[in-house]
């Protein structure tokens, strides 16, 4: 459950103030599938970063799973990111010198989970995303689709309640892109909240709820009754 109240975020470019987010109020229930769309500069990525605790709003309040997030210390926020949130990025952001398995293992290492448990969980993730054959390959030896599968495996290995995907198919061709989307949607079917930022209308339309943004404000918020 995500509840944003009166969120503002302003950037200063020189002496000009840019209102990336301007009084945003938003509620996203557990297990929802939401797409956030809008042209570049509309504030959709900033919104995602604030939901993902990578960025702090200048004002407003943020409640995640009944917990007020803004007042938490840096360390506590890191813990929330570790346990509740999974990120999927357009450019994958895999660590180039680590193998696929090691990349997936990273969040488990950061959480201080013992080695034995880590191994079995990484193995499960590799199996779930059909990466067993590629476990010991580095990102440079993987195709784009495989890289994004590794990234999704990494985002889900801690079993977070929210997956945040920023243009997850932006660097993939159409067919691989829809395969990746199918994987993400499968996570949603199993109860994870899925929030996808995209400027691709077709992709956005797959979500059950579509939020349209422009100039730091939510313009449209409509639900799809199709599914």
């Amino acid at each position: 459950m995500i509840r944003l109240t009166a969120i503002t975020r302003t950037f200063h470019m020189g002496d000009q103030a840019v209102h990336a987010l301007n009084d945003i109020n938003l509620y996203i229930g557990s297990g929802e599938y939401v797409s956030i769309m809008g042209p570049s500069g509309s504030g959709k990525s900033t919104l995602l970063n604030i939901i993902g605790l990578l960025d702090r709003p200048d004002s407003g309040s943020y409640e995640l799973d009944n917990r007020m997030i803004i007042d938490l210390s840096e360390t506590e926020q890191a813990q929330v990111r570790r346990e509740k949130i999974g990120f999927v990025f357009q450019s994958f952001h895999l660590v180039p010198r680590l193998t696929a398995a090691e990349n997936i293992e990273l969040p488990l290492i950061l959480s201080g989970i013992p080695q034995k448990q880590r191994q079995s969980r990484v193995e499960e993730a590799l199996q779930a995303f059909e990466l067993m054959q590629r476990a010991n390959h580095r990102p440079a030896e993987l195709s784009g689709g495989q890289r994004q599968r590794v990234a999704i495996a990494r985002a889900t290995v801690m079993q977070p309640s929210v997956i945040l995907a920023d243009e997850p198919t932006g660097n993939l061709d159409h067919q691989i892109g829809s395969e990746v989307m199918a994987l993400l949607e499968d996570l949603h079917h199993r109860g994870t909240t899925l929030i996808v930022v995209t400027h691709d209308r077709e992709l956005g339309a797959r979500a059950h709820r579509q939020i349209g943004m422009r100039d730091g404000k939510i313009l449209t918020d409509q639900s799809n009754d199709a599914v």
Binding site: G52, L54, E74, T75, A78, Q79, R81, R82, E83, G86, F87, F89, H93, V95, L106, P107, L110, S111, R154, A155, M158
Partner: peptide, 16 residues
């Protein structure tokens, strides 16, 4: 830099 950003995104603290 991006790797550090990623580590933070997946839950690394500054101390880590």
């Amino acid at each position: 830099t991006t790797e550090i950003g990623l580590l933070k995104a997946i839950g690394a603290t500054s101390a880590n």
